[in-house]
Design a protein around this nucleic acid. Structure first.
Lengths: 242, 242
DNA sequence: TAGATTGTTAATCGATTAACAATC
DNA sequence: TAGATTGTTAATCGATTAACAATC
């Protein structure tokens, strides 16, 4: 159970001294989304069984996930929607604006700047960079000017962002990451299909459309022309209506 | 080991009758990418140790992953780069063009149509749909016309795509998915932050930027505001696992 | 042959789920 | 109180990794 070979942060993930599994963190956003919806519908209290119904995530899983961070509910009653929402936001550090640098202002970069969910969750793209003269000076999203990538250091000295989104071509990704890291970036969301080599204190998450499509493609061929069903894709996609 | 409570496809994932883990499928694309690069460098043979170096994925993991699909290498020698590349492509059914419908022609949709990796891996977006009059008739990517979503059935009767990418707003996602499924779509890559309820024979994969950012945000706060790294300056990397 | 590297089994590690005592 | 639902422990399930006999 406790420490083994790995890096071991042991900064107390919150209450218990246990390391929080990544899948747990991923699910927290799902709970959050559900809670926001419930609040919008003026629902005040929610049980783990109701969370299961609305998110597809097992109720025991939900309770276990929360247990890494303390106690949140009242036995026999459930959870306060607003309180739980607040606490999860704090756990994920998205209760306050989180400044982010966007590097790469192509189609994908533009899509991200315009993505409505970001601001809603307090993720704030504070600057967009590109190194192409045809893009520098143009505006993407709702009026954000694309800056010369060469100015990243100068700009980040002011805004002090620790997160960056890399939406650059494969061959540029590593060198761009190096520069970003040199100027204080410590967490990278990488859209380029490359293994980024980074110092130990930097965290990288990769998003790969191709990977997702390939998994679908495989299952499509597996379940054959007939409908044998491929057991669970990702979530629990049972249920139908209509 | 063999059958238990789950759905159990038992259509032979390929050689062994075992169910292939999703993480294995995800890694196959990574291997593929690496192999393509090696072929470009005229490397003819590769060992699992070399795969580990280039992808960051454990050599035993690589061999185990392949074992679900048969035997690929020669003991003492390694794997033929081109042969392995071909076989993985076939496993993922991306050795031949895979037609895909794009639904939602906003920024994100446009980014996907323009994404160079797609065609490279034989994923072919054959039609793009939207229901907004301001988008219908316009062209995205390199000249693909945006069609009225109402025409999806008609169009898919011709192209017979089984995969769809959903890049629509949250509130439209479910109804759009229903329509797509009614017209033959059986695999969905969903970018909207919603739990899609679909019939059992349909597979969904979700891509959530927010989830990824949240995980980064959490870790950022965990590893502390100060620089934990007492050691070396900037570079000298460590590999980045998952 | 000697050295290298595979494919696979077994050991480990980690995550999910079921079960239940505690408690509102 | 009786019923509901939590938080947590224990059981299960699944995935990763190490180890090694087989073999080129």
């Amino acid at each position: 159970m406790p420490g083994q070979a790995t890096t071991e942060v042991t900064l107390s993930p919150d209450s218990s001294g246990e390391k929080v599994p990544i899948p747990t963190l991923e699910r927290l956003t799902t709970y959050l989304r559900s809670l926001v919806e419930m609040r919008a519908t003026a629902i005040e209290t929610v049980s783990s069984a109701e969370i299961e119904r609305s998110t597809g995530i097992n109720a025991a899983q939900f309770r276990k996930d929360l247990s890494y961070f303390g106690e949140f509910g009242k036995p026999g009653v459930g959870y306060s929607v607003t309180e739980l929402e607040n606490r999860i936001s704090r756990i994920l550090k998205i209760h306050e604006l989180q400044p982010i640098l966007l590097i790469g202002a192509g189609n994908l970069g533009a899509a991200l700047v315009g993505y409505p969910g970001l601001e809603e969750h307090k993720f704030h793209i504070v600057a967009a960079f590109d190194n192409s003269p045809t893009k520098i000076g143009r505006r993407i999203g709702s009026g954000m000017e694309v800056l010369d990538f060469a100015r990243l250091g100068e700009i980040n000295a002011g805004v002090a962002a620790r997160m960056a989104i890399l939406a650059v071509p494969q061959n540029a990704a590593q060198s761009v990451a190096d520069v970003a890291i040199a100027h204080g970036v410590r967490a990278i969301l990488n859209f380029a299909p490359v293994l980024l080599r980074v110092p130990r204190h930097v965290i990288v998450r990769n998003v790969s459309f191709l990977q997702e499509l390939a998994v679908l493609s495989y299952h499509l061929s597996e379940s054959g022309g007939n409908g044998t069903s491929a057991s669970g894709a990702d979530k629990r996609n049972e249920e139908n209506r209509k």
